[in-house]
Design a binder for these strands. Structure first.
Lengths: 123, 123
DNA sequence: TTTTATACATAATTTTGTTATGTATAAAAA
DNA sequence: TTTTTATACATAACAAAATTATGTATAAAA
């Protein structure tokens, strides 16, 4: 599980992340079925080895945009006494979500090539 | 050599590129010794399989910023009757340039991991 | 009882890009 | 021969997408 309080120990370029937040959200929800906003930030934080902290100012507008675009659907639930907004991918958004991920994967592949890294399985 | 007029045939996310222009410039100049602006745009275009077209509005401010930061040095040359500004990495900027590339590589590595791709040689 | 964590949200500002515009030379196409 | 395309630089207006700051509210831990 996620352990809080750890500080990033390695260098990381926040700027590279510009444009990756929405794809990341789609990726996580594709993999996990449904997630709520705060959970997404913690999940990304953990998966990135404490390197990426998605800020609220970026997260919530991104989620709202994805819902407006029909790629995500939202369901409100009250847990304890607190509100949670669970996001998932509706059938009607599955195709767009998959296309976005495909596009993102290819773009990362191009970056990998340009910077001289090697992507396992790439031609 | 570069052949003009080809149109991108594959999907590509321009947004993913946000933040990658300066690292790309550093990478290309590190590899090639010295380059001028227009040459950089064509090189990136070719290496990316016609997917990435760096616009002048992004390129020149980025180059000027890198010079201002001491990471690049510029030398003006007249070729034919036209001006070229060659950029290279001065000894005094080598460390910062290498650090920036290292940071970029690690960031791309994190993206690769988050999106479930595999980087050859990664642990 | 104060701080930290959870959970949402928006407004002001900054960063970083695109699009449009500008100057100028050289080569290719109509 | 004239127009278009390519080369080569640059900046200004605008848009997108982030950070930072602020706000509300509950729950748990220090």
């Amino acid at each position: 599980m996620y352990v809080c309080g750890m500080k990033p120990t390695t260098i990381f370029s926040q700027e590279i992340l510009r444009g990756t937040i929405k794809p990341m959200i789609i990726k996580l929800i594709t993999d996990n079925g449904r997630m709520y906003g705060y959970q997404i930030t913690q999940c990304v934080r953990e998966l990135s080895g404490e390197r990426i902290q998605i800020t609220e100012g970026a997260l919530y507008p991104a989620l709202h945009k994805l819902v407006a675009d029909g790629i995500l659907r939202v369901e409100v639930e009250t847990v304890g006494n607190r509100e949670r907004k669970y996001y998932s991918i509706p059938k009607s958004g599955a195709k767009a979500a998959a296309a976005k991920l495909e596009e993102t994967n290819e773009s990362i592949g191009v970056l990998v090539k340009l910077f001289g890294l090697s992507l396992y399985g790439a031609e």
